[in-house]
Design a protein around this nucleic acid. Structure first.
Lengths: 218, 218
DNA sequence: CATAAAAAGAACTAAACTAGAACAAAATCA
DNA sequence: TGATTTTGTTCTAGTTTAGTTCTTTTTATG
């Protein structure tokens, strides 16, 4: 079978010839595989030719041809791919979704795992997002507590009733429910200890709409 | 395979023979490829013949024949490969973390993006997790609302004060604050409309500890 | 620590590209 | 058919690019 370097080189040759119609030069291959000298490529090419993966016209420039591709990947490549897959799964974080908690069934019983929850991808699928740490309890009746992380979708505008990040006088940012009332904008808290702020629409800039709330208990 | 010039010439030959029915002259090829002398074309033709891409009748005019063309990957496959790479980036979902919202600074101003929030990995780093949809408002004063998603870490035991998934009589699952009182277990809601349930410890099984709350606004 | 394999580096050689001119053979047409 | 045009071939010559080979150094491995 092939070594890792041989395999990598073969992939590169195959890719570039199919994309460009031309074979790569030793210089280009050297860079692609990560060597600093052309002589190494020469050895690899010979090995690939000996194993009948490529053909070449000796002493001709860019005269390589891929005859066949290996059916199996070298072990080193496989291991690297596995690592990447693991990293991806961690990043994707698909965990089983067991459904509603109030149903009177033991959790183990309905652990069929057909439904999974892919946390990040669905949460930030389209658009630009950013995160904010919530400070204070002005939105606590909306279930948004001090210390929560808010995922905000960037936006210049929002509809009435949406929870937005509002910038007042280019100075103060706050998370509130938006209510447009003619020339005024009302920023409504969700806590009876706080009062609604009624501001001239010109003073308020929407900087984003609340997309998700994440709270971590440790 | 071929050099760039060889490939370009081959493309031209192939195209014109298919369009006009007869092969181009050296003069036409010279112009098409951008040379000022026919001799260059002659060399290129020889190279293409040597590599078995064309055949020719020597000393005959316009007597070229294309034997084969280098194979291309269909564009669709190339695009799909790119999409996959993008998907991988989406799955990682690192979004900028802009810090505290109450600080009186416009968001754009402090967008240094040095701190990022990797949502999934930190949330489910170690242990086994599952998700539950919250139904009802018995925990609303803890900021856990109807429809929220609870990420639960599997556990058999928990400490006083932790929010747990408790299975009562192998029948009913509920999310409440745990309070162990001797032989009794108290399941404390966070809503004054609900009452604390005081149960014999034997009737209650801990099935997990609340790890995160996720709420999506759409 | 010794050995072999892999990689780097430099020197060398050959091919590719460019251009111009002269020439020879084929194609065209009166 | 013979003259003319078109087309392909060959040679020289210089520049650039690319492939080969050999020696030295580094790295991995028993």
């Amino acid at each position: 079978m092939l070594t890792e370097k041989q395999y990598k080189l073969l992939l590169f040759i195959n890719k570039t010839t199919k994309e460009t119609g031309c074979s790569p030069s030793f210089e280009e291959m050297k860079n692609a595989v990560g060597l600093k000298s052309k002589s190494g490529i020469h050895t690899l090419i010979n090995a690939l030719e000996e194993r009948e993966f490529i053909r070449k016209l000796p002493h001709k420039a860019r005269a390589l041809e891929v005859i066949r591709m290996p059916k199996f990947k070298p072990r080193a490549i496989l291991e690297e791919e596995k690592k990447r897959e693991n990293a991806l799964q961690h990043a994707a974080a698909e965990i089983p979704f067991y459904g509603k908690i109030a149903a009177g069934t033991p959790i183990e019983a309905l652990a069929d795992e057909t439904e999974t929850l892919s946390i990040p991808y669905n949460m930030v699928a389209r658009g630009q997002f950013y995160a904010l740490r919530i400070e204070g309890d002005s939105m606590k009746d909306a279930g948004i507590l001090d210390g929560d992380t808010a995922v905000i979708k960037k936006a210049d505008t929002a509809n009435n009733g949406e929870i937005v990040v509002a910038l007042i006088d280019n100075n103060e940012a706050t998370l509130k429910i938006l209510q447009k009332k003619g020339a005024e904008v009302w920023l409504v808290p969700c806590n009876k200890d706080y009062e609604t702020r009624k501001l001239d629409a010109k003073r308020v800039k929407v900087q984003g709409v609340l997309s998700s709330i994440i709270r971590n208990y440790h």
